[in-house]
């Protein structure tokens, strides 16, 4: 790698080429720009999947609907039952204020919760080993007929799976972007090698090895890709940085971005692009040199 960055005489024997240089830099830049967004998507999806999956595992709710004269008795029965259920660390009824806050986004802050026939909510916290939700449902039906266990699984699990798939798609996109860049750079390298067939012929005549000839092209294309990818990464990071922040709106799309040390991850992309260009050009060069023999 040290030899790659050190200026060599091999560089000067190949004439500077125009459109392939521009094409390589542009391709690497554009692909890295897209890769930054794919990476942001993968990271955001990952965070979402972990958050939802974590929430799935940690908490559940028992919703209790019963006539007013039975509500206290059934609530106690539910709490007693939960206290003896393996896998449940804690259970507590939500206070009126907590219920008001839950309903506030839909009904506003002045909702008279006390005056409404709202079901009583009991929050369950797991102890990590997990509990038997089906068994708990059956016991609740027997002890408190108005109690319904809502372990959030029904609606959160598909969301968690979707977020997980989205993360996978993000990484898959990065892989495809890398392959596309390799293909484009291979084409550009082949074009440059074909355009320099006479130069290669002269170099062969005077005893140049394939590795010497290839090095000139590989170094040139790798550095071009590195420079293009560097610019693409900077532009991509700037693009992600100007997206509205999650704190302002709170939605998924507005949460697309990086957090903390995650902002450093896109900086890995230019060296990766350089490696892709190095491998693609090297393979193309040796293949083409054998063809030109």
């Amino acid at each position: 790698m040290k030899r790659l960055f050190a200026p060599t005489t091999a560089d000067s024997v190949v004439p500077p080429s125009g459109h392939t240089a521009w094409l390589t830099s542009f391709t690497a830049g554009a692909m890295t720009f897209l890769a930054v967004f794919a990476l942001a998507l993968a990271m955001a999806s990952g965070r979402l999947a972990e958050r939802w999956a974590g929430a799935l595992e940690r908490t559940a709710t028992v919703r209790l609907s019963a006539p007013p004269e039975q509500i206290a008795q059934q609530e106690q029965a539910v709490l007693d039952l939960l206290a003896t259920t393996p896998g449940i660390a804690a259970a507590r009824p939500l206070t009126t204020d907590e219920q008001r806050r839950l309903l506030e986004p839909w009904f506003g802050p002045d909702l008279p919760v006390d005056a409404l026939p709202l079901p009583r909510l009991i929050e369950i916290t797991e102890d990590g080993s997990g509990y038997d939700s089906e068994g708990l449902r059956l016991r609740l039906a027997a002890e408190a007929p108005g109690a319904v266990l809502d372990d959030h699984t029904r609606w959160r699990r598909p969301l968690a799976v979707a977020a997980d798939r989205l993360r996978l798609l993000g990484w898959l996109s990065i892989g495809l972007i890398g392959l596309t860049m390799a293909a484009m750079i291979t084409l550009a390298a082949n074009a440059a090698l074909a355009a320099n067939a006479q130069v290669i012929g002269v170099l062969r005549l005077v005893g140049a090895r394939d590795s010497y000839i290839a090095r000139a092209f590989v170094r040139r294309f790798t550095l071009r890709a590195l420079a293009g990818a560097g610019a693409g990464a900077v532009l991509g990071l700037a693009g992600v940085a100007v997206l509205p922040s999650a704190d302002q709106a709170g939605g998924f799309l507005t949460g697309l971005g990086f957090q903390g040390a995650g902002w450093l991850l896109p900086l890995v992309l230019p060296p990766v692009a350089g490696l892709v260009a190095f491998a693609a050009t090297r393979a193309a060069a040796f293949r083409k040199l054998k063809e030109l023999n």
């Binding site: 000067s12 004439p15 130069v199 002269v202 062969r204 005549l205 005077v206 005893g207 090895r209 590795s211």
Partner: peptide
């Protein structure tokens, strides 16, 4: 091998009628 051919050519000087050069050097 291809490398050995290159090394051998360093011991043989060749002059063609349409001798070609690297025009940018």
């Amino acid at each position: 091998t291809r490398d050995a051919v290159a090394m051998t050519r360093r011991r043989i000087g060749v002059v063609h009628q349409d001798c070609q050069f690297l025009d940018h050097l």
